[in-house]
């Protein structure tokens, strides 16, 4: 293979053939030709998604030792383990684009990488475990169900796997909320407080509004995304409002109202200033999350070293035997 120029000039015929494949609904696979921008956008989006899964283990991991019953503890451990697994599915998908996972993990650990802003909010009460499962995983399902049809095969396949598991996450969360909402006044208040804190950050999970989303255009054109941020957000609100009503929980939005004409639940303006602050690293828990992630990584160093030493020893043995 010849050395490629630093800034690749792409053959218009190749680009046209690629876009025709996208238009025909074909799936793009790792070894297929793709525009550099497609590869870049996918790498950015998938690595952020993988990091979000991994950091997402932290707010919930916080409550494992304090789960109110063995049943709840088992579920929570399983859920947190799933999130780690989801991170691995997506890192694996990202590696098919020619990125080394090691490089991505480095970017996360040293604070260069972005991840979902929602995980920079603290988990203050047990009810937060319910509300995260219900709202945060609920929002993730809406997003990921559409990503399961993304044009890049490895990403779509990881999403299909993840969606199957997220349904357990959402149901266990809603169950926690339902039990608390039927409980003592203090329990009701606890779940209402959690909803008050997580509702707006959950809506912000879908990303900036369509009028202010710099990456959406390309992602939609290449069918990585198949719905806009605002379409997905609306879908989530429409699904969630009846679930809140069933719990007798009030969503903290005075502008929330049903619109007969469109069949949509109309909602108020998201505080985008706050969203961009959290993305920029100034959320309530950004620093704590990164510290915890680095500590976990460092604390695991001896396990990795032991695995390495064992593999080397086995290698030496088989070389000696040969």
């Amino acid at each position: 293979m010849e050395q490629k120029p630093a800034v690749p000039v792409e053959d218009p015929a190749l680009v046209a053939a690629f876009e025709a494949r996208i238009a025909a609904g074909e799936s793009i696979e790792p070894k297929d030709w793709m525009p550099e921008r497609y590869r870049k956008q996918l790498t950015r989006m998938m690595s952020q998604h993988a990091h979000s899964e991994v950091v997402g283990m932290l707010p919930e991991g916080n409550w494992i030792t304090r789960a109110p019953s063995l049943r709840r503890k088992l579920s929570l451990i399983a859920k947190v383990q799933d999130e780690g697994g989801h991170g691995l599915y997506i890192y694996c998908g990202t590696e098919t684009l020619g990125v080394d996972r090691h490089e991505l993990v480095e970017q996360l650990l040293d604070g260069r990488a972005k991840y979902s802003s929602i995980f920079n909010y603290p988990t203050l009460s047990w009810a937060d475990m319910g509300v995260i499962g219900w709202l945060v995983d609920g929002a993730a399902i809406v997003n990921q169900t559409v990503l399961a049809k993304a044009s890049y095969g490895p990403y779509a396949r990881a999403m299909i796997r993840i969606c199957k598991e997220e349904n357990f996450h959402k149901r266990q969360g809603y169950e926690i909320c339902a039990v608390l909402a039927r409980g003592t006044p203090a329990q009701r208040e606890m779940v209402q407080d959690a909803v008050n804190r997580f509702w707006w950050p959950a809506l912000a999970m879908f990303g900036p509004s369509d009028t202010n989303s710099p990456n959406s255009g390309e992602l939609l054109k290449w069918r990585v995304k198949r719905k806009t941020n605002d379409e997905l957000r609306q879908r989530f609100v429409n699904l969630t409002v009846p679930q809140a009503i069933a719990l007798g929980i009030t969503l903290p939005d005075p502008d929330l109202r049903y619109d007969e004409a469109t069949g949509n639940w109309m909602f108020g303006e998201i505080d985008w200033a706050e969203f961009f602050e959290v993305i920029a690293g100034n959320g309530p828990c950004n620093r704590e999350r990164l510290e915890a992630r680095n500590k976990a990584h460092d604390d695991g160093a001896w396990v990795r070293a032991a695995a390495n030493a064992y593999a080397e020893k086995q290698n030496a043995k088989s070389t000696a035997a040969a």
């Binding site: 990584h297 160093a301 070293a305």
Partner: peptide, 14 residues
Amino acid sequence: MSTNGLANDTWPLW
């Protein structure tokens, strides 16, 4: 991060 940690993160892919 230890140098050991770096080496261990580059395990082969299966």
